[in-house]
Amino acid sequence: MKLLSAFAASLLWAIPAQGQTDPSQAALEAAAMLEQASIALTEADSARDRVRALTGTIQAYEAGLAAMREGLRKAATREAQLTAELRAREKDVAQLLGVLQTIETTAPPVLMLHPSGPLGAARTGMMLSEVTPGLNAKAEALAKDLQEVQTLRILQQNAADTLTQGLSGVQDARTRLSEAIADRTDLPRRFVEDPVRTAILISSTETLDGFASGLAEISEGEIAETDASISDRKGDISLPVQGILLHRAGETDAAGVTRPGLVLGTRPRALVASPTAATIRYRGPLLDLGNLVILEPQPGLLFVFSGLQEVYGEPGQVIPEGTPVGLMPGETPEIGAILSTTSDGTGTDRSETLYIEVRQDNSPVDPESWFRTDKDG
């Protein structure tokens, strides 16, 4: 009985705290998000506003894929943790199973016999009555851990199909979105761009400052006035893309460059959307900034988003809040890469960078005075 008590004491290891996120449940919820996005994609073509419907679909896919990556990362970590714990306790587990098997197969009268007579038998019975529930509890915990490992492995094995469908769906949605934006004719215009004047302005300027100050010169005629205002949202405007903050305004980056804007790390091919209703003042390549979009949400205020691969819309159009203005560059990771790395939880899968500059009365101001950056996507 001393040996039995020692087994019981050694096997009362801690059970994981309640309230922690269940990795398998998180991954299953992500799969459900991708399924809902797939349904939304089939309904988008019949929607009255195809651009809005497809934008929501792409954002749903992006959120679902991000959640799936995170769920698989946590599932892999949890499986490794459980496997290591079980291997470390192989000897204890074997002893536990042996004791439980002995208790279950030994007849009660034999179990109660003791060399020291009735008093020893009584003591033995009391010890068994105290130890057996603990042993049963540990056996149940062991069975639960083994079942969790099996569930996590099955989930990861089945994830390839879910990810394949999700990646295919979001690529299809991006293609349809490009077509829907090209076909859109219902947006109001404040001006019509003059391509010749735009080309002259681009060739005659060497800085973003110079280009921004000459934007009024690229129209064929007068630019219609507007009384649009977003001043009441100052400091609380959402970022235009899901990402993590890499550099704040005025910080020097790895290349030794200091800029007045902020830099976000995004996933490849992430959708960039207008954070407010705004006029597109320019979109296209400029200097060394790559493809960029310049939006004017209110007179005298410009939002500059650069580092895009594809840009949407036409200069002069007034676009609603949430309208796509471009896609980030890069290649979507292959299924094997996602399953093998499943991200490390530190944002290393945000391989693309979006530069955001805010200009007020033709001078750069801190973007964080307008945008909310406390929540990274």
Rank of each mutant, 00 (worst) to 15 (best):
L246A: 10
L97E: 13
A6E: 13
M127T: 15
G125C: 02
E130R: 15
L262Y: 00
L119N: 08
G261A: 07
L152M: 05
L3H: 13
P333M: 06
S363L: 10
R269D: 01
L239V: 11
I294R: 02
T341F: 14
I294M: 12
A173G: 07
Q156W: 01
A182I: 06
A9G: 01
D227R: 14
T332Q: 11
D183C: 01
T164Y: 08
I244R: 11
I338M: 15
R359F: 09
L208P: 00
T102M: 14
A27I: 06
L187G: 10
G64K: 04
L142Q: 03
D227N: 14
L4N: 01
A6L: 12
L215Y: 10
S10Y: 07
S229A: 14
R190S: 08
A173L: 01
A249T: 00
G330W: 05
V131D: 08
D288N: 14
D22N: 15
L295S: 07
V51Y: 05
A277R: 12
L97F: 02
E43K: 14
S10N: 12
P299F: 06
E368K: 08
L152Q: 08
R87I: 05
G265H: 05
V257Q: 04
I202F: 00
L28H: 10
P329M: 06
R248C: 01
L292C: 07
F371Y: 07
Q165T: 15
D366Y: 07
L354W: 03
L82P: 07
E104K: 12
A66N: 09
K91N: 07
N362I: 03
D209Y: 08
L119I: 11
I154F: 13
L72Q: 06
M68D: 01
R259A: 12
D227Q: 13
T42M: 15
G377W: 13
K91F: 11
D376Y: 02
P260Y: 05
V263E: 08
A47H: 08
Q101R: 10
S203W: 00
A66T: 12
A14G: 03
G71K: 04
I154Y: 10
H114K: 03
S340C: 02
T279K: 00
G120Y: 03
T57H: 08
S129T: 09
S213G: 04
K375T: 14
V318G: 03
G169M: 04
T83L: 13
P108Q: 07
L3N: 12
V93Y: 02
D374T: 15
